[in-house]
Amino acid sequence: MYPAKFDFHAPNSIEEVLSLLSEYGDDAKVLAGGHSLLPMMKMRFATPQHLIDLNRIDRLRGISQDGDTIVIGAMTTEKQIIASDVLAMHCPLLPEAAKQIADPQVRNRGTIGGDICHGDPANDQPAVTMAADATYVLQGPKGERSVHSSEFFLGSFYTAMEADEIMTSIRVPAAAGSSGSAYVKLKRKTGDWATAAAAVQLTLDGDRCSSVRIALTNVGATAIRVAAAEDALSGQVVDEALIDAAAQHAMDACDPTEDLRGDVEYKTKMAGEMTRRAIRQSLARARGQ
């Protein structure tokens, strides 16, 4: 299975990428890990005339700390996220989620930036980075701009990124104080996309939940941040009744479509259950249990 013909560009700098994108516009696509794009090109769902490979640009890779913020290059692979000491220490939600993405070979190539930019509601990083309060840094001909993860996803395969922009990094605040997080994903088998999944990150102030973020994977046209569930828990001493209430809000926010992974009712119920489990696990972790 071959993709349709295209011209291949392998620039060494972000500037070159941007000038190629300006030149070729909608006829061009950037190639990251290729594990969503190449299968789509083989099936001719995508037929770019120009493919711009980002793999030679070292500046787009790697994980570093900028004060209280962790900066993850867009071309950082899921494997590098799993192996990162900085993330294990300051944002364990990301490595926990990355371990649940696809399989070892895919994680060796697939990048966090590609997982997000693809705009696929089935992908895990959108909801995970939303729960982690991430901001995406985009660069285009007019310079750099930041878009918060909660405002980036506009529809299925449709994001706030313009065709002449690329994502350069993902900025995540280091989790502070008594915080805990969890990504709980229901899948049919190892390597599968989620039937439903919930990402939770919260902070405790004594017994009270001082802040919490909750987001869902693959139960709607985009990853869904569930503000109502967050409101239900914020400032409260979280007990099972509140966890149930939050799960109900999550189910109310769902709008899944029926497919091989299940019907609407099943997926909705599972989103509720994943939310319950992710909250319980985050609480236990925040309490150091």
């Binding site: 291949f8 392998a10 290729g34 190449l38 494997k79 070979q105 060796n108 190539r109």
Partner: peptide
């Protein structure tokens, strides 16, 4: 189609030869 590519396992059906 798995091969060892610069010390990592990859699926060679999802990598361009030019890469």
């Amino acid at each position: 189609c798995t091969v060892d590519f610069n010390g990592e396992s990859v699926k060679s059906c999802t990598l361009l030869a030019v890469q």
